[in-house]
Design a protein around this nucleic acid. Structure first.
Lengths: 225, 225
DNA sequence: CGGTCTCTTGAATACCTTCAAAGTAGGTGG
DNA sequence: CCACCTACTTTGAAGGTATTCAAGAGACCG
């Protein structure tokens, strides 16, 4: 399916572009539908362009031979993914899989580089975007290496609490997926949740989690045991 | 100390710039000396510009309240660091410390952005650079989460073997630092080395490591136990 | 109401860290 | 050249945390 200027305008990637430019770009982008569980690309695939999520949700992850998976990030509508292969190297470093039925936009490397040369602001925006991602990775590496699972979980809950703004917060994914994002497995996450609950810091009810003791949770997040 | 055009020309950051441009830039950059162990910046410091290593060696790391440290990367002469704070956010996300007496160059955010606007190629280079760093982080997160210490160590040794090209390879840092880079501690690294040695895969002699069984080492690196 | 996917729980195990102590190496001053 | 200091490294024993394996409970959907 072809992309339309309206759709492109919704993507943060193309923020600030003139309507005329969007019309031109629309001809060069393709939108495709992917089913739940289907892969947009796999680690090692040649990266001939970049993608963006139009609707749905995509997760980027790496798998191990033993079957364990580590989620690197979740891509929400409007956000691009697979940019790294455009600027550096040729193969995608990870797998991209739709978590729900999704629509993704594709733009070839050539078309994107042309765009970048015509619109330097796009390049600066991309720098800001990659920098943010780097910052998140720094955080993720530090968390994995320096904190134990309950601390990582507590930090995650605090982040979600802040972002959602409502107190019984709702996990945006299955607990299995969350475990994989936090660098652990389902069983361990389950036990950690139960432990925090037993300490009276939270209440768990399905995907709803109520925070009872904010400061204690913060102390756990900073490895306060 | 002021920077000179000759010094700037050596930095990969400024690769491809005209000599005239380098002269102008030299006036805006400052070079300072840092002693071994001294910090160039600390996590949380406001990031008003970017740095590059002129000579010496700088490590970027995060510490935990418990005292453990995770090295994120080592910066060698010619390479920039602290760029993330220039494009996104304001505070440095990690600590930067000289491992040996070093000289580092500083360029203010404003001066760098001016340069980027005048020389779009610099921006594209920076994108390639950040993309490479992202790729490395993807790798680091996956290794930390999916592999055990012996596998991470084996993968590291294979990488060094390839880069150095000589068979008794030489560790470029202390084993304590290596441990911190691999996401573990000195004692565990020591035991892992001994284990690989006991299996006849390598020979360890101080910082020299000879690889005896390449394919077996590769199999360990891929979690072949 | 059966089937499937998600989640929980228990027991055993593996891996890594902690703590403590001793050994090694390199550099400096006597 | 030797003695000594310091930083780095190794080693052992004990403990803690996370994973594995296996089974059962719960939730959702057709």
């Amino acid at each position: 399916m072809d992309a339309t200027p309206e759709i492109l305008g919704e993507l943060s990637l193309f923020e600030g572009l003139s309507p005329e430019r969007l019309v031109v770009l629309a001809e060069r982008c393709r939108i495709s539908s992917v089913n739940k569980g289907e892969h947009v690309f796999r680690a090692g695939d040649p990266g001939n362009g970049l993608y963006a999520v139009v609707s749905g949700l995509v997760r980027i992850y790496r798998g191990s031979p033993g079957g364990k998976e580590q989620v690197l990030h979740f891509i929400e509508p409007g956000e691009p993914f697979g940019e790294v292969a455009v600027f550096q190297g040729d193969a995608f470093p990870a797998d991209a899989q739709a978590m729900v039925p999704s629509q993704v936009l594709f733009m070839s490397r050539r078309d994107f580089l042309d765009l970048a040369r015509q619109d330097p602001e796009i390049t600066l925006q991309m720098l800001a975007r990659l920098s943010l991602r780097l910052r998140r990775f720094v955080h993720q590496v530090a968390e994995l290496s320096l904190k134990e699972v309950p601390a990582r979980l507590a930090a995650y809950l605090l982040k979600e609490l802040e972002e959602q703004g409502s107190n019984p917060l709702t996990l945006p994914m299955s607990k299995g997926q969350l475990a994989s994002f936090l660098g652990t497995i389902q069983e361990t996450l389950s036990r950690s949740l139960k432990r925090l609950e037993g300490q009276g810091l939270i209440v768990v009810k399905g995907r709803e989690i109520g925070v009872l003791d904010l400061s204690a949770l913060q102390s756990v997040a900073e490895q306060g045991r």
